[in-house]
């Protein structure tokens, strides 16, 4: 789309019979020029006022103080406070853990989509069922799993009947973060699955048939035909899954662990909420927001870079 005063799309209509042609033409031309701006004005207003402006305000805000020092510039104090806060460090460490678990979160829907694509018996049913949890709120999912995973709850009862010991799914600091991430993956793999399936629909099937008639095994087909063919889709799923892990686990944390036990399940988004809402330290929360934004930027760009590189080497 060229920038600049492009001519209006219509060839102007010669004035109506009952009006002087010239004024009508001119008024109409001005109206034509203005119309796009009027159409887009509400959207721009809302986005600028409630999204772009707060972003700048927040970054600015993170360099001011809380409480007694409210509004005064404090330089990088909030950022050093963050760094010295053991809870925030746990939150960052957990982000690292999420990055490590990311390939698992992408591989599960990828494999399942592959089998659905290869028309495993019952593939239509799976398609419907797998997406089910993806439409449910984290509140509902968290509530259900709170019941299932309670120490004296059904899952442990089942494990005991099977002769295995109980696991304190949500009460053991070493286990709880994996439990929450596991539930998050359970709840969201359907989204990625649908995206993968849409990618498969664009896959060149002649290549697939050729590989099969050459006697390629399933892992070979996946590695040499499907993965290269779907590189864009895989890239997209990687980035969106990462964004999902960093920005949409709040509900589960809020319902399932409240960041506990011992702060072990904190993530930056939960930390921001606690500092803003409960500890009344909005400036510190803003600093954490800025860090989260930078982390997402870095992780996102690094992923795209890595995946591009991997794609080229093939």
């Amino acid at each position: 789309m060229p920038i600049g005063d492009a001519p209006p799309l219509v060839r102007p209509i010669v004035g109506r019979a009952n009006r002087p042609a010239i004024t009508s033409h001119r008024g109409r031309a001005r109206w034509e020029r203005l119309a796009p701006y009027l159409l887009i004005a509400p959207a721009v207003l809302v986005i600028v006022l409630f999204r772009l402006w707060p972003l700048l305000l927040g970054v600015n805000f993170s360099f001011t103080g809380d409480g007694d020092r409210n509004g005064t510039p404090v330089g990088l104090d909030n950022y050093t406070d963050l760094w010295n806060d053991p809870v925030f460090r746990i939150a960052l460490r957990n982000v690292g853990l999420l990055v490590l678990l990311l390939p698992v979160a992408v591989a599960i829907p990828g494999l399942l989509a592959t089998f659905i694509f290869l028309r495993v018996p019952g593939n239509r049913l799976y398609r419907t069922v797998y997406f089910f949890p993806a439409v449910l709120s984290p509140v509902i999912i968290g509530s259900i799993f709170n019941l299932l995973l309670a120490y004296d709850g059904p899952l442990n009862e089942l494990l005991q009947t099977a002769g295995l010991g109980s696991v304190d799914w949500l009460g053991d600091p070493k286990v709880a973060i994996f439990t929450v991430v596991g539930v998050h993956i359970w709840a969201t793999f359907g989204m990625a699955l649908v995206v993968f399936l849409a990618g498969f629909a664009t896959l060149d099937t002649t290549l697939l048939d050729a590989a099969r008639s050459d006697g390629a095994s399933l892992p070979q087909v996946i590695w040499h035909v499907i993965v290269p063919g779907l590189s864009r889709t895989i890239q997209f799923v990687f980035v969106t899954t990462m964004i999902g892990m960093l920005t949409s686990m709040f509900g589960l944390l809020y319902v399932m662990t409240s960041g506990g036990p011992g702060g072990s399940t904190y993530l930056p988004e939960y930390y921001i909420w606690i500092q803003q809402g409960q500890m009344n330290r909005p400036a510190l929360a803003s600093a954490a927001s800025t860090v989260l934004f930078l982390v997402m930027l870095v992780v996102g760009l690094a992923q795209i870079g890595l995946l591009r590189k991997a794609g080229r080497e093939d």
């Binding site: 409630f50 707060p54 927040g58 960093l246 930056p268 988004e269 909420w273 929360a285 927001s289 989260l292």
Partner: peptide
Amino acid sequence: IPFQVIMVP
């Protein structure tokens, strides 16, 4: 821009 990043301001 995730909501977490702008929620304080």
